[in-house]
Write a protein that binds this DNA or RNA. Structure first.
Lengths: 133, 133
DNA sequence: ATCAACTAGTTGCCTACGCAAGTTATTCCC
DNA sequence: GGGAATAACTTGCGTAGGCAACTAGTTGAT
């Protein structure tokens, strides 16, 4: 836990430097980037992030207020919505990427061997999957 | 990050169930347990925890107010103090231990192979050490 | 068709905690 | 040994975010 907090804090500073956004919000942009034009439902976005539904609502509020993302009404469910990157959001993500990847290296990957990176990646993916279940 | 937040949240609930304390505070007790009778300086405790100095001040306030730990004036530095478990604190730590270890297993270790546990442990120790430097 | 049970997202409330500035004690240099 | 630079906590302030309760919409059973 101590190490993971250290990495998270370092990455958060790096994220602020690279995009002006806290790590959690940068991560939302990244997930939305993978989701593509179609957008993604808030509940799914929360699952793929480090936030609960209520935290997500507010993070989305912030990102929407600076026009990095947009809420669309969901065509198939009147309760729901679809969240997607705006053009501005896509640009912000692209611009932040190099600094972000350097930070992953300096705060995390550079301290590990190849084998360790593989072990950590697969183990943590399994843990995240178990948690979602 | 997603996995580490999932584990942290699970462990936090488990810690609440086992001792009534949030994970961060349980961890402080654990570190103090290892420090022994002599106690430990707040700055060192902060380094060994997930908290900054200011967060530590307040966590110590809370734990002291329920008599699980005590602040002593430091004999060798008039600015400083020594923090140590009270007898009540030692008991609380012992009572929480079984539930706590079960939670480490169910939220973390059970999802990993032996080799992965070793890889993660050594890698994360190195990361934590690098951060302290 | 209606009503109950569930799900999606939002909000009120509260707390933890980081940052930066403040206080007090120490060290070190001259 | 006197004064600047540094270190050890503390505190004021601001914000993020979890929980639980709420609203609105959906689904399914009769």
């Amino acid at each position: 836990m101590v190490a993971s907090v250290a990495v998270t804090r370092g990455m958060d500073r790096a994220s602020q430097a690279a995009s002006g956004l806290p790590l959690a919000e940068h991560h939302l942009l990244a997930v939305l980037g993978e989701a593509g034009e179609a957008g993604i439902r808030p509940t799914d976005l929360a699952r793929a992030s480090t936030l609960t539904k209520s935290g997500l609502t507010r993070a989305v509020d912030r990102l929407e207020s600076v026009r990095l993302i947009e809420r669309r009404t969901c065509p198939t469910d009147g309760r729901g919505q679809l969240i997607a990157l705006t053009a501005k959001g896509r640009h912000a993500l692209r611009r932040a990427a190099p600094g972000f990847f350097r930070a992953v290296a300096s705060h995390f990957a550079d301290h590990l061997t190849e084998r360790e990176i593989e072990a950590v990646t697969s183990a943590f993916e399994r843990i995240a999957a178990a948690d979602r279940a």
